[in-house]
Each structure stands twice: as structure tokens, then as C-alpha cells.
Design a protein around this nucleic acid. Sequence first.
DNA 1: TTGTAGGCGTTATCAC
DNA 2: GTGATAACGCCTACAA
Lengths: 372, 372
Amino acid sequence: MEKKPTVYDVAHEAGVSIATVSRALRTPHSVRPNTRKAIELAIKRLGYVPSGSAQSLAARRTNSIGLFLPNIDELDSLSDFQLTTIDQAEVVVDPPRTPSMRPDSFYFDSLLRGCELEAWRQGLSLMVNIGLGRTDTDVSRLVNDMSGKVDGLIVMARSVPERVLEPLRRHLPLVMVANAPSDHEEEFDLVRVSNRKGMSALVRHLVKAHHVSQIAYMAGPDDSPDNHKRYEGFCEGLRDCGLNPEAAPIYRGQFSQVIACTITKSLIAQDSLPEALVCANDQMALGAMTALSRAGVPVPGRVIITGFDGISETEATEPRLTTVRQPIVDLGRAAVSTLVKRMSAPGDPPISTELPVTVLLRESCEGPLAGV
Amino acid sequence: MEKKPTVYDVAHEAGVSIATVSRALRTPHSVRPNTRKAIELAIKRLGYVPSGSAQSLAARRTNSIGLFLPNIDELDSLSDFQLTTIDQAEVVVDPPRTPSMRPDSFYFDSLLRGCELEAWRQGLSLMVNIGLGRTDTDVSRLVNDMSGKVDGLIVMARSVPERVLEPLRRHLPLVMVANAPSDHEEEFDLVRVSNRKGMSALVRHLVKAHHVSQIAYMAGPDDSPDNHKRYEGFCEGLRDCGLNPEAAPIYRGQFSQVIACTITKSLIAQDSLPEALVCANDQMALGAMTALSRAGVPVPGRVIITGFDGISETEATEPRLTTVRQPIVDLGRAAVSTLVKRMSAPGDPPISTELPVTVLLRESCEGPLAGV
DNA sequence: TTGTAGGCGTTATCAC
DNA sequence: GTGATAACGCCTACAA
């Protein structure tokens, strides 16, 4: 591979000075057509591409932003990857099994797509990193490395410990996604969805339209802020309808399909199913549906099931699952949009945005619906 | 926001020279413990992070690689994004409808994840870009911009016109994914999956294990290399079993679920269903399944349906869909792995890797299977 | 319109 | 061990 040409090479080839080359690139109209042609020709000939590093150094901005995502579980079992070509397609029988999903992937993929989208619109490059480092030190190295290469950073909640975030924030525009360190949440730029309002609207619908009063909550992990917000919404919805949240049973499904399935099975066995089982995410709702359909319990006839998130699997169940859809792609776009604002106005007060969610009423609470 | 501290600030704060600061960072053992401590302290105090641009410029390498993905259809309708907070969760009835999927997203998301994974393992940053530009000029600007910021580029097939790829290749390590410009394919580094072998293995299984002889092919778009490779495999499989590929009907499903559904419906109406309908991708197989299940045609009793790709929806149908799974995440890892090799050995001959696929036999051809 | 020269923040090669 | 100093490739006044 040939040595990379620089402005000097182009200048020499075109018989002009490097300043003129630079100008021809940045303010074409400020250079005489003839010389411009010559320069363009030289550029083509040499296959010249400006060095991003040098440009960034001189301009003191990189025109890129970074996105930092947390660990993804599948990455835990990361082995050395070997480039080998096997000359045969494998043929295997693939027996049915409880689907083991990658619940988080959908979220991250969508978020990423939103960021890409908006970054592109804003003319920015997007650098992606996953917090794969086990230790704080590793993550710290990663995020430091990245922060040297970008003009601003979007950080998914819980992907970076606050201890490493805090010093960064002094010199780098930072936008948090989903939530910010609780201590001084209001100091951060933040984008999130209104988990609370979505859940309360759903609960109000259940009570008012379907007249259920025995409602149970299938909860996520205690350390999940999303779960907390959703539970708050659950309680709020009940209170709005004059019901007592304290009276509603809570089951700890840990955002897990399998656990939710097990719990639901035992509820069936003890004949202690509520009129409606409100799950803190779709995975658990899917698990509950599995248990109910195996036991032949009619949904929504005997029990109403609802989820939260709006993953595509909720459309494939029978009946389809009522859920609350988060605008995750828009969340990504909002993050970039906020970051851009911040970069151009470093002194302004923090921007906190809450995106609205959509309650999707489907057969698991409505019963048969006319198709389109 | 405070001015970003530089080595000079750190040096001054610690009472040493910038050279020593640099050394303390890169070869800690070559500096006396005391001075090192002082420097580390100064770094913490100031919140210093090295400038990636300057590092890259001096080191003549960026330690990042780029991934270039093609247009994603959903992006066509890209509007200005407004940061607005609506203070209400929307509640809507969501009627059942033919699912409109994002067929490509799954592929790109998985590929991206594979790249992230391997890039992380190799200590590289990953820069992602989508070829959203309408015109060649736009794409060209995008890819040029990106190529100035990275040490190497991974390019998804058909995301960048060859005309802009060719000059880039002179100075930048480049790995193609899925396929390379046909003219001089063998000059490119390339990673792909063995579409042909997967399809032929599937067809051989259908003929030998299920004794079908009337097989039809539901084809993708003519301009899709994947479709061609799969059709080659289809023919090869038939020939291997002594059947004549010329005799097999071809239906043009265009990789579209809706079109495949329509076609299948008319096949049912004309009573011209084959014994097995081999689809060039999962979307079309899903469309066919929809038509068949609506018409009450038993699968695989009356007709066997197979797909290709291994998307998750194929596990949700009843019966589940026999398909060929591509190792897309591994494809991404292989791409990065190849790129790294190339970067460290620019002169070596092109590396072409073909990853094996897996034929997943499920109920849509096998009939009832024992679960696990 | 074009050229000269200083600076952007690091790394690395010298001396000391 | 530590400190000057010259690259690295580009941008941008400032001159011409």
C-alpha cells in the first residue's frame, strides 16, 4: 500500500502552495477556477483524502460524537475468534425450546439506530463503544480513550460508573440516556421516556374500561430505575381510580421470561390469579402468557395480561399482547439532538427531555379486535 | 465548560516537562515513582484526557476502524426531529395487521454487534456510518470523511459504489462484507457466508429425507447476489439428487412477505402448489405460511415450506419454519479480524473467507418434533 | 488570488 | 531519569 498523500503532495503535484490546496477544499470560490481544476486533478490522481486527525487537531473539533453502551450479556462468553472456513453446511434438527432472548439487544439496537440517524442528519460521525471491561479501570480506560476522540458523549444509564463520569463532565458535553446518577440528576442533560405516565395510563384503562379491581404487578429487579418508575405509575393509576396500591400483590419476576412463567404457573396452581396481571416488561408478560396458554387459562377471559416496551414478539402471541411502546429510536435521536444543542451552548442550563410512550391496546386485554 | 487541559497544563501543574508527562503515560516504569505520582495527581486534578486527534496525528494511526452500512429503508422518510415533551401518554387501539418488518435491520444490527465485539477485543474504536446520502456525491463525501478518521474500513456490499471505493483502496485497508464488486472480486478482502452450500444442503435433505420431487423456488430480486447464490445452491442440490433444476418453477417474491403471500394465495387458488416451496429468504417463507394457514392448507402435510436467514420470527410460526441460519455476528467478527490482519500486513494477498451456515430442520418440513 | 508562517497537542529523538 | 525540540498534516491569519 502506497504512502498516504498529504496536502504537500497535492500542492506539489498541482504546482501551488498547501494553503491554496486547503482553500480549494474548504472555500472553493475563493480560488481561481483554473488553479482549482489543477488541484482537483491532483487530488484525484493521488487519491488524496484529508487526515481527520490533523483536521481535528487544527480545528479543535472532531465532528464526531460517541455513544457508550453497557455490557451486553452475550458478550460474557467471549472467546477468541478464529478465521476458519469450513467447507460444509451443517444440517441439524432444531427442537422447540423456550426461547432464550436477548432482551436488551432490541433496545440498544434501536437506540443506536436513532443515534446514527440523527448524527447523520447533523453531519456528525458516530463512534460506538460497549462497556465490556469487567473492572472500573477497564471501563474508565475505554471511555477515556473514546472521549479523546469525540466532541461529545452519549452515555446509556449504568454503562459507566459515576466516579469516571464526573471528571469527564468537566470538559466534555455529556448526555445521559434513561437516567442520570441519582445524586445530582438535575445537573445532567438527560433524555428518557415517561415510564410512569405510560404505566398509569395503562392501569387507568384497565380499571375504567374493563372494570377490573384485582390487579397484580409483576416487578423487575429492584436496582432497575425503569422498574421503579413503572411501579410508581402502577400505583398512581390505581390511586387515580380510587383503588389502594398497597392492596395489589407484587411478584418479583426480575424482568425474566422464565421466572415470570414459573411464578404464573404457581399462581394458576394455587388458583390465585388476579383479574389483571400487569408486567413491568414484555419478557415477563410473554412468560406469563406461556404458562397460561399451557394451562388453558383464557386470556383475557379469565385474566388480562399486559407488558411494557413494545418488542416485536408481543405481536406474535395469541392473543397479541397489550403493551406500552417506548419510542426508542426517537430516544436516540433526542439524545444526539440534545448533545448538539449542548455542544453549541456549553453554558446553558441542563436539558431534560421526557418522551411520551404509547399504550397499545391489543387482544390480551381487549379481546377480539377487528383486523385491518 | 472549562478549557481542556493539555500536556502543557499537566506538566506545569506537576512541575515537569511535557516529555515526562508523555512518558509517565506511555512508559510509566521509565519515570521515577515520585515524579510519576506528582503527574498522576496533576492529571486527576485537572481532569486531563489526551487528545485523540493529536495522538493519532503523531502516531500516524487512529486506532479506530470504520463500518459502512447501506441505506436503511426506514430512513427514507426522515423528517426533522423536534425535541418536544408531551405531557401525556397516548392510548391507542392497535389492530392486528400484516406485520411490516424491517427485514434488513436484523442483519445490520447483528453485523454491527459482531464488529463491536471484535473491535473491542482488538482494542479498536468502531465508527459507524450509514450510506444515507441519496447521490453518489453524498455517499462519497460520507465515506471520504470517514476514511480520514480511521485506519481501515469495513464496507457492506452495495453500500458504496465501486467508483468511490476504488481510489480509497489505494491507501486504506478495506474489507468487503457479503460480496465485492464483481469485476475484480478476487482483489478484495472479503467475508461472506456460504449461501450456495446452505441452500444445496437443504434441498438435498428435502429430496432424500422427505422424498419430494416437485420443488419450487421463491426467488428474491434479480439484482441480489445473495438470491443468485441461493438459487445456484438450489439447482446444485437438485442436480445432486438427479433432478432437473430447469423443471422447477420459479416465483418472483422479491424478498417481500406481502408479495410471497399473494403469490402463494394464487398457487392455492389454482391448485398448483408444489410438494415443497423453497424460499430465498425468511420473509417470503413467512408470507407463504400466512397464506397457507389462512387457507387451511396443512404444513408440512400438503406442502413443505422453507426459509433462509434464521430470523427470530421463524420460531414463532406454527409450525416453526425450517430455515438456514447465517452466522451474522460471526460475519462481523470475521470482517474485523480480517481487517486487522490486512492492516498489519498490507502487502499480503487478498483474504477471502466463507463462513458456514447451519440448516435448521424444524416442523415446517419435519412435522412434529420432540421439544426440549 | 496566492504564499508564508505559526500553532493545534502528542510522540519520539536527541542531548544532558 | 529528564528536558528541549522536531515532526505529524492541516488551518488560518497575515503578507504579498
